[in-house]
Design a binder for these strands. Structure first.
Lengths: 254, 254
DNA sequence: AATCAATCGGCAAAAACGTGCAGAATCAAG
DNA sequence: CTTGATTCTGCACGTTTTTGCCGATTGATT
């Protein structure tokens, strides 16, 4: 039995049952539990399953509702927001994506730094109404309620006409080989347009997104110029550094 | 049964039933109550449920925004909103202006009435994210922070390309002879564009706006097809009726 | 105040885990 | 076919996680 074949069968079993147990798999494939554990560890690293004590689970459909995610690990997001906001300089144009982490970036923008912000996210726009120095260009389009942001052809078109110095990108999964990915295909179109016309692309992502893969590709990992995330094991960050991405870990020192 | 799987199932049960009890869960999963209590404690720590004596409850939905909105919509505005929302019929396209009174209209839209809404107001768009039936087209443009809405040439241009069955118009002053007026010239441009391409123009205004005049003219009073306001002396309403405006007094009878 | 159930913290046993190492299997040339 | 390098596998050992139980404490109810 080939190792790769065994792994594939584990994934199939997982998809069928929703959950697998290390000891059961060991007996099923007549190998030691250690081997199974190694398999599971590797598959988890590739983001194909979620490793848990005793076995593994199907990766949960992470797409929670906005209200739910809004106040999830607020400190970590604030730290990421602050670290990202520190990248910008007076007078630059910054495109800010929809999502709770990009929103944290908008909320962290310094009150004294004049910027030009472009966004299709309602919460980002609303947050910047309180900001004294930035000038905001809202992009319209069909409203996507779940994301609280505009999408569709109009939005994509509008981004095509704009060159931003920075693009602050939220995403669902980020993997060194699979690249930056997201769940919704419509949102993916918008994000791709944002990336295409931006100078620097800054991905903001909670550490748990690293190494995971969602269905729709936004860009290969080496298209990112910066990755701002939280405290994470070095082996998850290192592949991005190797690709030339400027990796910034926020909230570690404080 | 894997620990992680059990926790996930607890969350699912909670979502389905709204509430779980420690002893019941212990019997259901054939583990001790201590184990369940530990699970609940950990899940609570992650903010996924609210721990209470005897079990756990669904986390109360984040209602910071909601509370704020509630205050912005006292009874008078809610009544105007409801009366205005009653004008619309299935499948129509409604343009909704920026401002707290038009926002009240958006909030009053029936959950079961499919409409197409066009707006340049961020709070209106955000409010309609919670609405199950309406389809929303956001119009972009330069963000006017004070109004929390888009304005400028782009917004005007976008309204020019759209024909709405209704236009819900907020305003600063409404006078039978001076017409509908507002304070900000930029916003006035947008409002004029809204009016120009709309079938019916519904002005929503608190009674104290009646008879007052602001600097920038939007339209003569007889361009209005409806005026929805609160209880007001008949001599203030009568001139509008004479001009052919359909005057609706909301919140009088209840 | 009194009482019973629920809770919390600590403890110990069992299971699962990660790591380093050595033998077996596999593969790419020679 | 043989050789050397690489990968895979199983085992041993120490560590971490999970779980049930116990005693002390807290909370709700009478």
């Amino acid at each position: 039995m080939l190792t790769a074949e065994r792994k594939r069968m584990i994934l199939n079993l997982l998809k069928a049952e929703g959950q697998v147990q290390a000891d059961k798999l060991a007996r099923r494939f007549k190998v030691s539990e250690d081997t199974i554990r190694r398999d599971l560890r590797q598959l988890a690293k590739e983001g194909l399953l979620e490793r848990v004590h005793g076995g593994a689970l199907l990766r949960p459909p992470v797409c929670g509702l906005y209200a739910k995610r809004e106040h999830q690990s607020p400190d970590a997001k604030r730290a990421i927001g602050a670290a990202t906001a520190a990248l910008f300089q007076r007078g630059q144009t910054v495109a800010i994506d929809a999502g709770t982490t990009p929103l944290a970036v908008a909320e962290a923008l310094s009150n004294t730094l004049p910027l030009s912000v472009v966004t299709h996210s309602l919460p980002v726009g609303l947050a910047l109404c309180e900001h004294p120095a930035v000038e905001v260009l809202m992009l319209g389009g069909t409203l996507f309620k779940q994301a609280r942001a505009c999408a569709g052809a109009e939005t994509v078109d509008a981004y095509r006409r704009i060159h931003a110095d920075f693009c602050v990108l939220g995403l669902a999964g980020l993997h060194p080989e699979a690249g930056a990915t997201t769940f919704d295909p419509e949102e993916a179109l918008v994000k791709r347009a944002m990336i295409q016309n931006a100078g620097a692309v800054v991905a903001v992502a909670a550490p748990e997104k690293l190494g995971t893969i969602a269905p729709h590709l936004l860009a290969p990992a080496d298209r990112l110029t910066h990755l701002v995330t939280g405290p994470a094991p070095e082996e998850q960050l290192e592949p991005f550094r190797t690709l030339g991405v400027n990796v910034i870990v926020a909230g570690a020192g404080n």
